[in-house]
Amino acid sequence: MTNAIEVYGITKRYGQKAAVDEVTFEVKRGEIFSMLGPNGAGKTTTIRMILDIIKPDSGKISVLGAPFSEATKARLGYLPEERGLYKNVALVEMLGYFGALKGMNRRAAEQRAAKLLDELDLGAYKKGKVRELSRGMSQKVQFAATIIHQPELLIIDEPFAGLDPVNTEIIKNMIFRLRSEGATVVMSIHEMHQVEEMADRLLMIHQGRRVLYGEVDEVRHRYAENAVIVSGQGDWAALRGVIGVQPDENGRNITLRLDDQTTPDQIMAMLANDPNYSIRSFALAVPRLNDIFIRVAGGEAKIAASAPNVAEVRHEPA
C-alpha cells in the first residue's frame, strides 16, 4: 500500500528567504501524523504545497498515491490555521456548499451537515449563522466543513485552538473515529501533550528545515538523558554511578543523572538489592515533547535530522 503523502526534497523560496528548504518526509496511510514547529517555521507553507495551493520551487509531492490533481481535492479535507467561514449564511447551507464543492450532491451534503452539527452539539444552530456563534462553536463548524465529505486524508492546522476541554475532547474523539474508519490524519499542532497522546509519528520543521522526524516514542527516547526518575527513601547521591540528584518542585520525584558507564538497569538492580533504599516508583527519564520542542526550536539540535535512528524516506515518489 502506498503512503498517503510522500514529500521529497521540497523547497519554496520567497525572494532570498527559503520558507521551506529541502524537506523530505512521508505519511503512512491510516496514521495520525503531527507536524510541529515554531511560528514561521514553514509548516503552513508545506501544507499548502501538499494541497497544491502553492507550488514548490523544487522537489516532488505525491498525495494518495499520485501527483496532486483536481480529483485529489475531493478525497481530502483541509482545516486551515486561519478559519474561514461565511458569517451571514445559514450553517447547513454553508456546509452544503462546501460539500458540493467537494463533489457531493447538494441535498446529501446538507443532510450530512445536519448530522454532523448534531454530533458536534450544534444541532440547535442548523439555521443559525456563524456571526451568532462563539469562537469555539465556529471552530467546530469549521471542523464539520473539513470532514463533511468523509475524506480519506485529513489535513488539520491547529484543530484545538480556541476550544475548551469539553469541545477539545469532542473533536479529538471525532479524529480518532475518522482514523479508525481508515482516514489518514495530518495535524499541525502546538499542544505537545496532544501530540504525545494522539500522534503515531511526527515531523518538526524549524527555519524551513526538517529537524525532527520519526515515531513519537522513538523521538522522545532519542532525547532521553542517561537518567532515571525515582521516588522513595534513601541516600541517592551515595549510589554508584549517580552523578547528579535533582528533586522535582514538590520533592516527590527525584531525577538521578548517571555517568556514561552506568545504565538504568544497573541502578534498578542496586536499589532492589540494597535494604537501605525504599522505592515507590522507578522510571526512565524520558523528556516531554514540550521540552524537546523548546530545546530544538531554541537552536540546540540541528542534529536530529541526521541522527542515525531517524527513519529516512529512501525512495522518491512517483
Binding site: K73, P80, Y86, F98, L101
Partner: peptide, 16 residues
Amino acid sequence: EEKENRAVEVLLSSLR
C-alpha cells in the same frame, strides 16, 4: 470578504 475571512483557503483546497 473571502480573503479577509480566510474562507478562500478552504475554497482553494476544493476548486481551482
